[in-house]
């Protein structure tokens, strides 16, 4: 493996919930709860999990769109969480984000060329001509005709809008991109176009992706390593192929098995199905957070939170890993 580009240590992000009278704090959501991992250069690290598991919060915290409650994240040796606003603004060039909803991620009152030019205007003092050239170049790179620059976002389809968002994210030649469900709002036939585009851009520009997704099929194809989150905790982390071939955490096993397979012949196999609902992140279960749904639950799981165990290059937070 290459060297780590980002080292995330014990990151916590808590949200106070104040719904009570007079804005009284009535609870805390432990959206990201003590998570540590490394992101290696040029890899795609997928973070998967169901709604409320904190994967999007994690992605936004790592590029400081949200401020972490605790922990550190070193990016090329500097702790992102302790940078001043000015230092942070410089670092923004290195880290970007691509969003899920191509309809909410573009300002409806701005022309496409202005949207793509915004990072350039913010960080680089280019002449008008130079800037236009860069925008045209970026549009071509993501597969948009440059004549589209003078149009507004509502004139485009979802796939095209996603390309615009990708062009904006690439404008400053970042090293690290958080892809927050970049294809899940797109049609099936458009998904593969965008996945191929992301792959091409990664190869050409040596990008590192943190690929947040709930789609286990896309993740298996696209990612090098995978981290599985459940209610703010990292349950399992390891190389994608190994995790899919032999999941160590029961949650991983059932999560992968839940996704339907486009092959009618697989329907005859007895399907592994998790019972019960996802617990509320406001009141996570004691001990192992997964114990209320886990088919292999033992007494210790209900009271004691499992330590993270290492198995050559893989880690799992379970009292009884499936080895």
């Amino acid at each position: 493996m290459d060297k780590p580009l980002m080292q995330v240590r014990n990151v916590k992000k808590y949200f106070p919930v104040d719904k009570g009278l007079f804005g009284k704090k009535t609870g805390t959501v432990h959206a990201v709860d003590d998570i540590s991992f490394d992101v290696y250069e040029k890899e795609t690290l997928a973070i998967v999990g169901e709604s409320g598991c904190g994967k999007s919060t994690l992605g936004r915290t790592l590029i400081r769109l949200l401020d972490a409650t605790e922990g550190t994240a070193h990016f090329e040796g500097r702790d992102i969480f302790s940078l001043s606003q000015n230092e942070l603004r410089q670092l923004r060039k290195e880290m970007q984000i691509i969003f899920q909803d191509p309809f909410a991620s573009l300002n409806p009152r701005m022309k496409v060329s202005d949207i793509i030019a915004e990072p350039l205007i913010t960080h680089e003092s280019l002449g008008k001509k130079e800037r236009e050239d860069r925008v045209a170049e970026l549009m071509e790179l993501v597969g948009l005709r440059k004549a589209y620059g003078s149009r507004y976002p509502h004139m485009f389809s979802g796939g095209q809008r996603q390309r615009i968002g990708i062009a904006r994210a690439l404008a400053l030649h970042p090293k690290f991109i958080v892809c927050d469900e970049p294809v899940s709002a797109l049609d099936v036939s458009i998904q593969s176009q965008i996945i191929n585009l992301l792959q091409k851009l990664q190869e050409q520009n040596n990008l590192t992706y943190l690929f947040i997704s709930h789609d286990l099929s896309v993740v298996r194809y696209f990612s090098d390593r995978i981290g599985v989150m459940f209610l703010g905790k990292m349950m399992e982390l390891g190389p994608t192929e190994e995790v899919y071939r032999q999941p160590l955490h029961p949650y991983t096993k059932f999560l992968i098995a839940a996704a339907p397979v486009p092959d009618p012949r697989s329907r005859n196999q007895e399907k592994l199905i998790l019972e019960g609902d996802i617990p509320s992140p406001l009141r996570p279960p004691s001990g192992c957070r997964f114990h209320t749904r886990c088919p292999y639950v033992q007494d210790i799981c209900k009271s004691k939170e499992p330590e993270i165990q290492q198995f050559d290059g893989r880690s799992v937070a379970c009292h009884f890993p499936l080895v």
């Binding site: 936004r60 590029i63 769109l65 942070l88 603004r89 410089q90 923004r92 060039k93 880290m95 970007q96 984000i97 969003f99 899920q100 909803d101 909410a104 991620s105 573009l106 300002n107 409806p108 009152r109 701005m110 915004e118 990072p119 913010t122 960080h123 968002g165 904006r168 400053l172």
Partner: peptide, 25 residues
């Protein structure tokens, strides 16, 4: 909205975000 988040992720200053992204909308 995500487009405001995108502007923040790029490092656009708050007053420009207000003028360029919030006011026109």
């Amino acid at each position: 909205k995500e487009f405001v988040e995108a502007a923040r992720a790029v490092g656009v200053k708050p007053y420009i975000i207000m003028l360029r992204h919030i006011l026109p909308n």
